[in-house]
Amino acid sequence: MQAVASMNGALRRLPPGAVYLLGLLPLAWVVWLVVSGGIGVDPVKAIEHRLGKIGLWFLVGGLTITPLRRFAGINLIRYRRAIGLLAFLYIVLHLTAWIWLDMGLLWGQALADLYKRPYLLFGITALAMLLPLALTSNNASVRRLGRNWRRLHWLVYPAVLLGVVHYLMQMKVISTEGWLWLAAVLALLGVRFRLFGPRS
């Protein structure tokens, strides 16, 4: 508990603004890999996949905030908005990389592929669910929406679930890493909706 208290104390000195800046480091890393040529032979796929993966890290990271406070006493609540918005940013960039770099802005073909590949539809649906959350992440919306704000933001749970299913379905053969992501998301949803243990 001593460690947790001193950690919470240290976190008090980290303003949420700094989290936004730190959250841009992965983007800077991708840009550096592209510029330096370290991204590999197929930069388009690598950019697309890296952005999606970073988005997934932030989405799942955002879901850990409440359980961390409840079970470990670590208080990261005031960074939750930054983490959520960063997740949204990376997923928008991921979609942009797909439609622009991968599909070459061939909208007709992209739409046709959407119909053929359910995992694309799952990914887009997840992003569509995150859009209202990003738009209502400001203080004014929190005040205006009142209790409905909380209800609206429950959309994050189906969005993360769709996102991780999207990630698994694009694999030819689902890797161990993929199953670990799914397990982590299911565990976090289980904790959130008290599927485990006694109901309070």
Binding site: V44, L101, M103, L106, K116
Partner: peptide
């Protein structure tokens, strides 16, 4: 599961499109 109408040339650069 996908269209075969176009292709991405590996090595063509990130903005080369299809």
């Amino acid at each position: 599961r996908w269209s075969q109408a176009t292709e991405r040339r590996v090595g063509a650069g990130i903005f080369a499109g299809r």
